[in-house]
Amino acid sequence: MTPGVRRGVFLAGMAAVLAFFLWGLVGLPGFGHYPGPYGDVLNAIGIRQTHATDIVSAVNFDYRAMDTLGEEFILFAAATGMGVVLRHLREERERSAVDEARDRTDPGTSEAVRVAAITFTGPTVVVGWYIVSHGQVSPGGGFQGGVILATAFAMIYLAGEFLALKRISPVPLADAVEAVGAASFAIIGISALGVGAAFLANVLPLGHMPGEVDSAGTIALISFFVGIEVTAAFVVVASEFLEQTLIVRRH
């Protein structure tokens, strides 16, 4: 099939899809006229039941915690799968990142990038940690904060060399941390069974006041471990890609 024919087939098919889509739109309640009722119910009872003032986190780590467990294992499986896909093939070896051209020297990291990256590493860790630990109170949580924390490792990479990053966070260590984060989520869920509650039920004390950091029981705890898992997963993903830049094929 030539590109021209394929485009024609696609445009015809897409026109039909869009026609059905627009037809379907006519029956929708319209933007801004939310029909409910689940969101309204959760907004009304969520704080009283979970002591979390961030209802999205309450949905993620309590009401829909089972789905989030699956979602976390998707991330876990993807990071692990990357390790399998990007394994060292035969006739590949690793070498330090020197310039391949003989008549040029390795340019190295510029001082401006180095200073900027070092300056922002600390604040990035603080912001990421804040987002992870306050997911039950304000917008945020383990997933969002974990990505920010992983950015701190990217900053370390920018400030130095990939080999320096490998020393601080070797892939096996990041793999282990990732596994601990993912397993802890499941263990929290199973330990609820031990006290006679349902899987992933919020069995911990909910704290005195909704809106305080120590409130919301397992929501805060799960958010913490998800943060660890996401941080490690993104460090693994980034490291796997960076490792590819070191690989030279032997011919």
């Binding site: 939310y34 409910g36 689940y38 969101g39 309204d40 959760l42 907004n43 969520g46 209802i55 999205v56 309450a58 949905v59 993620n60 829909r64 789905d67 989030t68 979602e71 976390e72 998707i74 991330l75 949580g141 997933f143 969002q144 996401v230």
Partner: peptide, 14 residues
């Protein structure tokens, strides 16, 4: 609705 916002978060991670 907080439910769809939580779903959007799942979507981003996937």
């Amino acid at each position: 609705d907080p439910v769809v916002q939580a779903l959007a978060l799942t979507d981003v991670v996937v």
